[in-house]
Amino acid sequence: MSKKKILIVDDSKTIRQQVNFTLTKGGFDVVEAEDGKLGIEALGQHADIAMVISDVNMPNMGGIEMIEALKQAGTHPSLPIIMLTTEGGAALIERAKGAGVKGWLVKPFKPEQLVAAVTKLTA
């Protein structure tokens, strides 16, 4: 059985490496993108992406803007998305929920929590 492919979108290479390492160890394949625009490009290039993990504040295009763009385009209506960010405010969380986000994790993340969330949302 092939591994499920997860897209991590974060402008920090360190965070992308950390998520990549955690999920690879947890049995997933990982694709990386540095901002929302590249995240959308990656989704176009990898039709088999099973889930997206995204930061909020990034240059060029932020995570919530990326998700709102995906929602508007209607190309990935059932793709699970969770946010991994330093932000924890109610207004942003509500906006993300409105755009269809399934979860919100605040950095620094717990590796076991991330793997459990990804496993559940890609089941």
Binding site: G88, A90, G103, F109
Partner: peptide
């Protein structure tokens, strides 16, 4: 803090 204010290392799922 508001109920949806999430601390570092914590998470919310909808």
């Amino acid at each position: 803090a508001e109920p949806e204010q999430v601390a570092g290392g914590d998470g919310l799922f909808f």
